[in-house]
Write a protein that binds this DNA or RNA. Sequence first.
DNA 1: CTAACGTATGAACAGTTGTTCATACGTTAG
DNA 2: CTAACGTATGAACAACTGTTCATACGTTAG
Lengths: 111, 111
Amino acid sequence: MSENDSCCAHEKLEREGMPGEEMLYDLADLFKIFADTTRIKILYALMEQDLCVAHIAETVGATQSAVSHQLRILKQARLVRFRRDGKNVIYALSDDHVHTILAQGMSHLCE
Amino acid sequence: MSENDSCCAHEKLEREGMPGEEMLYDLADLFKIFADTTRIKILYALMEQDLCVAHIAETVGATQSAVSHQLRILKQARLVRFRRDGKNVIYALSDDHVHTILAQGMSHLCE
DNA sequence: CTAACGTATGAACAGTTGTTCATACGTTAG
DNA sequence: CTAACGTATGAACAACTGTTCATACGTTAG
């Protein structure tokens, strides 16, 4: 299995066994984001199509405020991006790692 | 509300695309497990080789009690398995989803 | 301009989480 | 048997997290 990733930590991992402290904290922080049902719902919703905040709130069954707070977290983690459209703000997934990570989680659950 | 926005077909999402409530909670619970540095360290350590509790504690730099508590959580999620060896209890990874999920997380961090 | 709408944000709150400490359990040596 | 060792567990504690509420911000219609 030849993983030709540009990620420098992979080589280090194979040599030393464990990433550095800082990297481990970043990794834990990333998984924290997927550890909440509201955020997962938002991500699944955005996998279908780009959505404004009000429609996200409606789709996931949460208040506008709660969704806005969570979108802030997803933004900071660069998992979603956004653009203004008049009074609305449209959110979208920023890359396809979201899909891959969620799919792997599902795969474990269904084994 | 009757306007034709670029995000007006959100009603479809409630029918397809999104897993059920129960599955979403299980998925969030799974990612919660990866959302802690102590547990991540334990998993990385076990990727190298099977280890008893005392050696895990030494490797990850945590107390025996803290490690034992976390191993309980990893056990319940079926991410690790264990066997007795005299007075020791040897822990090991139970499947390779652990490696895949951690690698995907790393991949996102290094993009 | 002002009003209405969509969105963002801060504070307060309840619920959860991970660690420490003390102690109990299980196994083996003597 | 008892003592010593490795491991597990419960309670208490501090730190963190997600929601709600109130309110402020930014944009557009009139």
